[in-house]
């Protein structure tokens, strides 16, 4: 690996100061599972790697507060998916988080890292987008909140400024009954990168939010309010019709993992599966409420 320097700030001000100093010549490390691969491949040159694991202000936990679930920037995926608050309310995030890399990766990789790497195929991004997660960013200039849906600019690129750090991922608590699910297509059953991935969230009020990964430079989010996807009595043909309109915004390409045509076809296959499971869950949630 090309050489770089290492810094380990112990507080947020110290971290922000380092960021001010090094700007885009610095990279933050928490889990490091993406960063180190990039550094090993030599397609990223940095001057300093800043370890944020001792910055007390950056939490490694999941906290449920009034109306929100807050995921700390240092919370590792393996723990997030086992958190009772997440397990009970956000099955799509759990399903996605459980298949990110291997056990070893999930023990180390953070949800925040999965987001900030901005890989178009990142598995936790579609569910978090579908749940309408917000990202809180801080810098010496203050703090701002960005919807995850408008967080990505392109592959590997986000709206984070060189002097900013991700401080929190905030996921709104479900308003009413909600059903959600995640699915993906891969080349093998074991650990793999997604050929395409999809998360779907169905709300009691008839709104359906789908988010697709690996089908465009950034995640694609599509929303639909006819209510048909949330209605168990609607015909399969009609569901297909609606799903196809949702999928129309996806722009898959061909690469080593798959052809464009296969991606397009699998989008619909996976979207159907996601809708089916999400609807079962919505129905269950509606039943539970009565």
């Amino acid at each position: 690996m090309q050489s770089f320097k290492y810094a380990r700030p112990e507080s947020l001000p110290e971290l922000l100061e380092l960021l001010e100093k090094f700007r885009d010549r610095a990279r933050l490390i928490s889990g490091g599972t993406d960063l180190l691969v990039k550094l090993q491949h030599g397609n990223l040159a940095v001057e300093v790697v800043i370890d944020i694991k001792r910055v007390a202000e950056l939490s490694d936990r999941v906290v449920t507060t009034n109306g929100w679930v807050s995921i700390g920037p240092r919370a590792v995926i393996g723990r997030v998916v086992r958190h009772p608050g997440i397990e009970s309310a956000y099955p799509a995030l759990v399903e996605a988080g459980r298949i990110v890399g291997s056990v070893q990766i999930r023990n180390r990789a953070t949800v925040a890292g999965n987001i900030c790497t901005a890989s178009p195929a990142a598995d936790t991004v579609p569910p978090l987008c579908a749940y309408d997660a917000r990202i809180r960013l801080v810098s010496t200039e203050g703090s701002r909140e960005v919807p995850l849906r408008s967080f990505f600019v392109g592959p590997g690129k986000t709206v984070i400024a060189p002097n900013e750090v991700l401080a929190e991922i905030r996921v709104p608590a479900p308003h009413g009954a909600m059903g959600s699910s995640f699915d993906r297509i891969t080349r093998r059953r074991g650990v793999d990168l997604a050929t395409i991935n999809i998360a779907g969230v169905l709300h009691d009020n008839g709104t359906a939010v789908f988010a697709f990964g690996a089908v465009a430079p950034t995640v694609v989010v599509a929303e639909e309010t006819s209510g048909d996807l949330c209605d168990p009595t609607v015909s399969a043909d009609r569901v297909d019709e609606v799903l196809k309109t949702l999928l129309a915004t996806a722009r898959p390409i061909s690469d080593v993992r798959s052809s464009k045509e296969y991606r397009e076809a699998m989008l619909l296959v996976a979207a159907r599966r996601v809708q089916r499971t999400a609807l079962e869950r919505l129905t269950q949630a509606r039943g539970g409420r009565e």
Binding site: R187, R188, R189, G190, V191, L193, V256, R257
Partner: peptide, 24 residues
Amino acid sequence: LIYDERGRLRNAGALDYRIPTTKD
């Protein structure tokens, strides 16, 4: 192995060349 039209190997290594795992 996947080569592009110019003869560059596109999937060298464990990331994009898949072998069976315990689940395959």
